[in-house]
């Protein structure tokens, strides 16, 4: 039975603030209930559309170089957004691919972009990004408590 909630983190832990997604995932994973599955990968790829099958809610977590500090959280719609690179496929484009390939109803999807600053190989997390990570983690834990557990109780 697939977990109804998916947290999908994108990033490379060896490249500075690109580690934001995976690091947040570890923290969530420690306390997550059985109804939450955590997946991470270096990049979003088209085959990840298969990970959306059977989900009720999905949160994509990634470092973001364009949002304001500390993070940005918003609901996501499938979009024919012309994203070019399959190695950097946007979450919205992945949802669109899901609809095209599986012809199924989309789960409720969100994106959590955490502001990052430096992305060099071998660098650690920058102090500013570390602060942003703390706040984003607290936010997602709170969101999970509000969104997942009541739904689970209702479902039960």
């Amino acid at each position: 039975m697939v977990a109804p909630v998916l947290i999908f983190a994108v990033g490379n832990e060896s490249r500075g603030d690109d580690a934001l997604g995976p690091l947040l995932l570890r923290r969530i994973q420690e306390q997550a209930s059985d109804s939450v599955e955590c997946i991470e990968d270096f990049q979003l790829q088209v085959e990840h559309s298969a990970d959306l099958i059977g989900r009720r809610q999905v949160v994509f977590v990634d470092a973001d170089v364009s949002c304001e500090s500390p993070f940005h959280f918003s609901e996501l719609e499938a979009a024919h957004d012309h994203s070019y690179s399959s190695h950097a496929q946007s979450p919205a484009a992945l949802l669109h691919t899901f609809k095209q390939v599986y012809e199924d109803m989309l789960p409720q999807c969100y994106v959590l972009g955490i502001r990052g600053y430096g992305f060099e190989l071998g660098e650690g997390l920058s102090p500013e990004a570390a602060d942003n990570l703390e706040q984003a983690t607290a936010f997602l834990q709170s969101w999970l408590a509000r969104s997942v557990e009541p739904a689970q109780a209702h479902h039960a």
Binding site: H80, S83, V101
Partner: peptide, 23 residues
Amino acid sequence: AKRNIVGIAAAYPEIAKQGVLLR
């Protein structure tokens, strides 16, 4: 606007599906 995988999925759905599943 068409030159991407989403464009492929719209115009050639079977090819796009095969690509996803091969991968």
